[in-house]
């Protein structure tokens, strides 16, 4: 375990995450023919949220949101420390359950529907993330991120199907259109701000912060596919993220039915087919 890396993640991830969000907004604006906000806009936004008054529907919201942030940080920290990737995924799910419960606790129609949709999103992406971890295990024979990182061959070479499936659910996780069902970065959603509707001021700031941590963690997950060569990996990250922005700007939001079906079908076909082939190959020619 590299506790130092975990510490670095805790300190740097908000900076990286905020910058990524800023670049995202800038590129999005350019794609729409606008100038867009300053690069540091996400930091201003979160800074502002912490300056605002705290309003609540019920005090228990605090507990859920703080727990959400804490467990996102725990799962990300564990990931960067090189821990067991399945445990990372479970902690990650736990964190999101706290977000959902926070939304439920306010008993507000909008956040209630947001919570239900967030749950649908969770079940849409979770199988694919677990299959990705399984795929990495089949190639590297280890569930530890540290060992997967140390692989001296490109994982993507063995896991192309898994990678495509992962990109699919990445769109859900980054809250990008067409899968931004539960809450959206875009203005005006049919359920107001969905799962985050009732969080405001500093509490909403924590949600945003958690989202940055989460994004850095997800980028780290993609990095694993290319970990044998850091330069190519960073290039791949840039391309993947750019592709996500393009998708975000070219698709309209779909229904939850389509979200669930498409992500499960992709996970089922691409992910499982990939794993099946690996399984067959490892039975014939051990890697």
């Amino acid at each position: 375990m590299h506790m130092g890396n975990a510490l670095l993640f805790i300190l740097l991830a908000p900076i990286v995450g905020g910058l990524v969000a800023g670049i995202d907004r800038k590129i999005t604006a350019r794609m729409q023919g606008r100038v867009g906000p300053p690069l540091l806009q996400p930091f201003y936004d979160v800074g502002k949220l912490f300056e605002k008054e705290q309003i609540l529907v019920t005090p228990s919201q605090n507990f859920y949101i703080t727990s959400y942030l804490v467990f996102i940080v725990v799962s990300g920290g564990l990931f960067f420390a090189g821990g067991d990737i399945l445990l990372v995924i479970f902690a990650f799910t736990l964190a999101h359950i706290f977000l959902v419960l926070g939304a439920y606790s306010s008993y507000s129609p909008y956040s209630f529907i947001g919570a239900e949709r967030e749950l649908i999103q969770i079940i849409a992406y979770e199988p694919m993330i677990i299959l990705s971890a399984v795929g990495m295990y089949m190639v590297t024979r280890s569930f530890y991120v540290a060992d997967i990182m140390a692989a001296e061959f490109p994982l993507i070479y063995y896991l192309p199907g898994i990678f495509i499936g992962f990109l699919m659910v990445l769109t859900i996780k980054l809250r990008k259109s067409p899968f931004d069902l539960s809450t959206s970065h875009h203005a005006h959603q049919e359920i107001v701000k969905g799962v985050t509707t009732e969080f405001s001021g500093p509490m909403f700031g924590l949600v945003e912060l958690a989202h940055w941590y989460e994004n850095v963690f997800l980028l780290g997950f993609i990095y694993l596919f290319f970990a044998w060569n850091p330069l190519i990996a960073i290039g791949a990250l840039a391309i993947v993220y750019f592709a996500e922005i393009v998708i975000d700007n070219t698709f309209s939001r779909v229904t939850w039915q389509l979200t669930l079906k498409s992500s499960w079908i992709i996970a089922g076909f691409m992910g499982l087919a990939n794993l099946g082939i690996l399984y067959y190959l490892s039975a014939v020619v051990p890697l």
């Binding site: 008054e53 705290q54 309003i55 529907v57 019920t58 008993y107 507000s108 107001v192």
Partner: peptide
């Protein structure tokens, strides 16, 4: 420092 506000309707 909290202010309790009803849910947004």
């Amino acid at each position: 420092d909290k202010r309790i506000v009803p849910a947004y309707m």
